[in-house]
Simulated assay, not measured.
Amino acid sequence: MQAQMKELTVTERKMFVMGKISTTIKRTEKTLKRKRKHQENRKRSRITYLVESKQVCRQSFEYMHCISNCQLSGIINHYKTSGVTPPIKKSGGRRFNKAALSESDVRHIVGYISSYADVNGMVIPGKVRGIKCQDPRV
Rank of each mutant, 00 (worst) to 15 (best):
C57D: 08
F61I: 00
K30T: 06
K6E: 11
C133G: 05
K98W: 08
R13A: 02
I76Q: 02
K20A: 08
S82I: 06
Q4W: 05
I21P: 00
K14C: 08
A117I: 12
E12M: 08
N41Q: 04
N120Y: 15
I25K: 02
K90T: 15
G74M: 02
M122T: 11
F96C: 13
Y112F: 13
V128W: 03
L8W: 04
C70G: 05
R137E: 00
K80P: 02
M15G: 06
S114R: 14
I109R: 15
M122G: 06
S104H: 12
K132E: 11
V56N: 01
K26I: 12
Y116H: 13
Q55M: 07
R42S: 03
Q55G: 02
Y79A: 00
K89P: 11
R58Y: 04
E12V: 04
E29W: 07
V51Y: 04
I88Y: 10
Y63V: 03
D105Q: 15
F16Q: 08
A99P: 05
N69R: 07
R27C: 09
Y112E: 14
Y49C: 01
F16I: 08
K35P: 01
Y112L: 13
K90F: 15
K35Q: 07
V123A: 09
S45I: 04
E7Q: 09
S60W: 01
K89C: 14
V51R: 02
L32G: 09
Y49E: 01
R58V: 03
H38W: 03
C133T: 10
Q134A: 06
H65I: 02
Q59R: 06
S115T: 13
D105T: 12
Q134M: 07
Q134F: 09
K90C: 15
S114H: 14
Q39M: 04
S60G: 03
S53T: 03
S114Q: 13
K37V: 09
K89V: 09
V110H: 14
A99H: 11
T81E: 15
M1Q: 07
H38I: 11
E29Q: 10
S102R: 14
Y63L: 05
I113C: 15
P86F: 04
P86R: 10
M18F: 03
Q59E: 10
K54P: 00
E29D: 11
G19P: 00
G19Y: 07
L32V: 13
K6C: 07
R129P: 07
R34Q: 05
I88S: 11
D105I: 11
R42F: 01
Q59G: 02
N120H: 15
P87W: 10
K30S: 05
Y49N: 01
S60P: 00
V119T: 12
V51P: 01
G111Y: 06
V119F: 14
N120F: 15
V56F: 00
Y112K: 12
